Deep mutational scan, measured.
Amino acid sequence: KNAAQIVDEALNQGITLFVADNRLQYETSRDNIPEELLNEWKYYRQDLIDFLQQLD
């Protein structure tokens, strides 16, 4: 998997990933985040941060 796929997957589930103060953050109206997504975000944290910062 790559960062773009993970960001896309999150968006499809109503979750927006973004970077604030060099930390990976998310916004969602969901009550909870599936644990497998959280684990994936932790595992790919630096890739996601790098990818999202390139988009800014």
Results as ranks from 00 to 15, higher is better:
21 D>N: 09
44 Y>G: 02
26 Y>L: 03
24 L>P: 02
44 Y>P: 01
33 I>N: 02
31 D>P: 11
5 Q>P: 01
40 E>M: 08
48 L>R: 00
6 I>D: 00
16 T>P: 02
13 Q>F: 14
15 I>L: 03
33 I>D: 01
33 I>T: 03
52 L>C: 01
22 N>G: 15
12 N>F: 11
20 A>K: 15
55 L>W: 10
8 D>A: 15
23 R>C: 15
46 Q>V: 09
32 N>S: 14
49 I>R: 03
26 Y>M: 05
41 W>V: 04
33 I>Y: 02
45 R>L: 15
25 Q>N: 08
34 P>M: 03
52 L>F: 10
21 D>S: 05
45 R>P: 01
17 L>F: 05
18 F>L: 07
29 S>G: 08
9 E>Y: 08
6 I>T: 01
27 E>P: 02
54 Q>S: 11
47 D>I: 14
7 V>D: 01
9 E>N: 06
30 R>A: 09
53 Q>Y: 09
35 E>K: 09
49 I>Q: 04
3 A>C: 08
8 D>S: 14
30 R>C: 09
12 N>A: 15
31 D>I: 10
53 Q>C: 12
22 N>Y: 07
40 E>A: 06
12 N>L: 14
2 N>R: 11
19 V>S: 03
16 T>V: 14
27 E>F: 13
39 N>H: 08
4 A>L: 06
34 P>Y: 03
15 I>F: 09
49 I>K: 04
16 T>I: 15
29 S>V: 08
51 F>V: 02
6 I>Y: 02
21 D>I: 04
38 L>V: 08
21 D>H: 08
40 E>G: 03
52 L>P: 00
49 I>T: 04
18 F>Y: 12
40 E>V: 07
47 D>V: 14
45 R>H: 13
10 A>P: 00
44 Y>V: 02
7 V>S: 02
26 Y>S: 03
3 A>Q: 02
24 L>C: 04
4 A>D: 06
56 D>I: 12
24 L>S: 00
31 D>G: 11
8 D>T: 14
46 Q>H: 09
21 D>A: 06
15 I>N: 01
33 I>L: 08
50 D>G: 06
33 I>S: 01
53 Q>N: 13
51 F>T: 02
51 F>M: 03
25 Q>I: 08
27 E>M: 13
34 P>F: 04
35 E>V: 11
46 Q>G: 06
2 N>A: 09
49 I>N: 03
40 E>R: 05
46 Q>I: 08
13 Q>D: 04
34 P>C: 05
36 E>S: 12
48 L>W: 00
4 A>Q: 12
25 Q>S: 08
20 A>T: 12
27 E>H: 14
2 N>Q: 11
32 N>K: 12
18 F>P: 02
46 Q>F: 07
9 E>P: 00
5 Q>M: 09
11 L>C: 14
55 L>P: 10
9 E>M: 06
31 D>M: 10
50 D>E: 13
17 L>V: 03
51 F>A: 02
44 Y>L: 03
